[in-house]
Design a protein around this nucleic acid. Structure first.
Ligand SMILES: [Zn+2]
Ligand SMILES: [Zn+2]
Ligand SMILES: [Zn+2]
Ligand SMILES: [Zn+2]
Lengths: 156, 156
DNA sequence: TCATCAATTGTTATATTATAACGTTACATC
DNA sequence: GATGTAACGTTATAATATAACAATTGATGA
């Protein structure tokens, strides 16, 4: 929902994301296989978006591109990750299960990302669109700038 | 500002865009060379985003990728076109000269795009971000859905 | 149990989008 | 015209993503 503090317990951060993913997959009758689980874990290694080929390297031992892209497709389809269009990269979803338009704040300095799920902005855009007769099905919002930590002068 | 009607005079549409580009380049002391002008004209051939390699083909006779990407970089830098991140494609700017965050409505059926320059949405996002201490430098908003023409049942 | 079918993964090749590097040409300015 | 810079040509390659098909796994019911 907001930017993670620099000293937060990231281990529990990852654990809770994986737990939520398991639950969501059970709920949906989807199989969170070993590969998919490992990819999701790798994505959650940091709070910054990760590229497909970076994940591929970390996956190790002769994994080929289709392996990673299939896992990403699965995770995207089930709302467990988002694709950051302006970076060709992927980030874990902070609100799995609850439908929402991803709205991202991307720090240009430290790379951190925060995902908002406020409906206000979404509604504002939908209304502006509706005024022109346009029906919005999906929405991509990516704001680039400086996160609180990187603005403060102190390095994040 | 809105979706072009299907029977609008597109010739004058292109002409006015090229005229505005010339004026803006004069104002900025930038050189709208022949290649850059032709690329801009090709982009304005339709109101749908065009990919770099599609432009390259239309440019003809042995033009290589750097040629097109340099022209695109120039046109982007001077605010004459926008990049549509969700489509790796480029579209002419409807409001050259006046600074604005591009906010795009993209029809998934006919491919048409409308560019909004309403400051309201931009401000809403900036305020939501500011509430978290995030300073927005640039903003990407791309809404996918159905344009008025494609909603109406009648094919556009 | 095991036959069967669908989902998942492996493997190889290739498509698509974009940039690096370096030489050459055109243009402005003196 | 000499000089410096911006623009362009050319070749190669990087980065991102998908096609196609074979092999494997896992559920499901005869
Ligand atoms: Zn999300
Ligand atoms: Zn930061
Ligand atoms: Zn614009
Ligand atoms: Zn349409």
């Amino acid at each position: 929902m907001s930017f993670p503090s620099n000293d937060h317990d990231h281990r529990s951060c990852v654990a809770s994301a994986l737990g939520a993913a398991e639950a969501e997959c059970r709920r949906r009758g989807a199989r969170l296989t070993d590969i998919r689980r490992r990819v999701l874990e790798l994505i959650w290694t940091s709070h910054a978006p990760v590229g497909a080929y970076a994940l591929l390297e970390q996956l190790g031992r002769g994994a080929a591109p289709p392996t990673i892209y299939r896992a990403l497709d699965f995770l995207l389809a089930h709302g467990l990750i988002h694709r950051i269009e302006t970076q060709n990269a992927y980030v874990g979803c902070s609100h799995p299960g609850q439908p929402h338009a991803g709205l991202f704040l991307l720090c240009r300095q430290c790379g951190a990302v925060a995902e908002l799920a406020e409906a206000a902005t979404t509604r504002a855009i939908e209304q502006e669109a509706a005024a022109l007769g346009f029906q919005v099905d999906s929405l991509t919002v990516e704001a680039h700038g400086l996160c609180p930590g990187c603005r403060g002068g102190a390095s994040p």
